[in-house]
Every structure is written in structure tokens, then in C-alpha cells.
């Protein structure tokens, strides 16, 4: 299968890569760019573990082709903290013990960040529905929701 040359921006870094037309953005991030923070839980858009933001839109990277990354700007979990300065959401997830195994955590954080950028003062119901596409099997979501609400509050005050 001949490969396609793609130029893209991930977390403000420009990347060039070659990919097969059937490779997804998730495959590219993980296998070509070594950004393994985005996880594959289903590859069908049902679990949200691969969530990234592409040109300002929250998407499942498993449902975007690598070739579609051409000219796009992608934000992944690896770009969320500023050096060792964690994003308030990341900090609140630690404070609230909002993770157990941690496999869904990158996707949940990327989604939650996209929510708070769109809606800085969401209700609990809004948080729950926004995150409906991020499956977590460990926590029962309770502490995740609390952490997001608390981070939103802190970010509004800042």
C-alpha cells in the first residue's frame, strides 16, 4: 500500500509523517509520532479513550484518518500540562482521586478541557452528558464529575 505524506501540527509542534490511507489518526499518533497518551479502547468511537481536539473540535482520533490530519492543528493529552505545571483539571483529578486504573483518564481530561473552554460554568448534568462518550469502568464517574466541577470553579475564579 503506498503511503501518503502528511504535514500536521500536534501540540504546537509541526510533524511530517508517512501513513497508509487506512491508518487512523490514533494509529499515527501512537505508532508514527510516539504519542501514546491517547488510548485505543474500541476503535469505533464508543469509548472516548482516544479523544483529541482537532482545529478546536473534540473528536475521537480513532474516527479520523491519518491523511485527514494534513494542515490541521491537533491537541492531545501530552500537550495539556505546561512543563511540570499541571492544568487545573489534571490537578483536580489527582486531588479528587478521579482515576483508578487511569486508561480512560487522558481521554476524559481532553474532553473535559474542551467542555470548559466552551462552557466555563457547566451544571452537573451538562458535565455528565458531555462526557457520555468517555467510558470509565473503574470509578462509577462520581469522582470524575466532582473533579471537573471543582476545576471549573477554580478556573472561573482565576
Amino acid at each position: 500500500m503506498s503511503k501518503y505524506h502528511v504535514t500536521t501540527t500536534v501540540n504546537n509542534d509541526e510533524f511530517e509523517f508517512l501513513c497508509e490511507p487506512t491508518q487512523t489518526m490514533l494509529d499515527v499518533l501512537r505508532d508514527e509520532l510516539n504519542l501514546t497518551g491517547s488510548k485505543e479502547g474500541c476503535a469505533t468511537g464508543d469509548c472516548g479513550a482516544c479523544s483529541v481536539v482537532m482545529d478546536g473540535r473534540l473528536v475521537c482520533s480513532c474516527l479520523v484518518l491519518g491523511v485527514e490530519m494534513e494542515g490541521k492543528s491537533i491537541e492531545t493529552i501530552e500537550g495539556m500540562a505546561d512543563g511540570d505545571d499541571l492544568h487545573p483539571l489534571q490537578q483536580k483529578f489527582l486531588d479528587h482521586a478521579a482515576l483508578q486504573c487511569g486508561i480512560c483518564t487522558p481521554g476524559v481530561l481532553v474532553s473535559a478541557k474542551a467542555l470548559l473552554e466552551k462552557n466555563p460554568d457547566p451544571t452537573e448534568t451538562e458535565v455528565r452528558y458531555w462526557l457520555a462518550g468517555n467510558l470509565c469502568r473503574c470509578t462509577g464517574y462520581d469522582k470524575i464529575i466532582r473533579a471537573v466541577m471543582d476545576a471549573a470553579k477554580e478556573m472561573r475564579a482565576a
Binding site: T36, G37, I77, L86, F93, L94
Partner: peptide, 23 residues
């Protein structure tokens, strides 16, 4: 006590290596 979990930071930054993350 509700101490900080030692593996926490690596799990909120995407650094933690799970089963499929090794090459």
C-alpha cells in the same frame, strides 16, 4: 489519609505506559 497517589501525575499527563504502549 487521602495522600497523593504516586503514579498519579504520569496518569494525568498520558505518560503512564499501558499494555499497548511499549515498542
Amino acid at each position: 489519609k487521602r495522600t497523593k497517589r504516586p503514579d498519579g501525575v504520569d496518569k494525568v499527563t498520558g505518560r503512564a505506559r499501558f499494555g499497548a504502549d511499549t515498542r
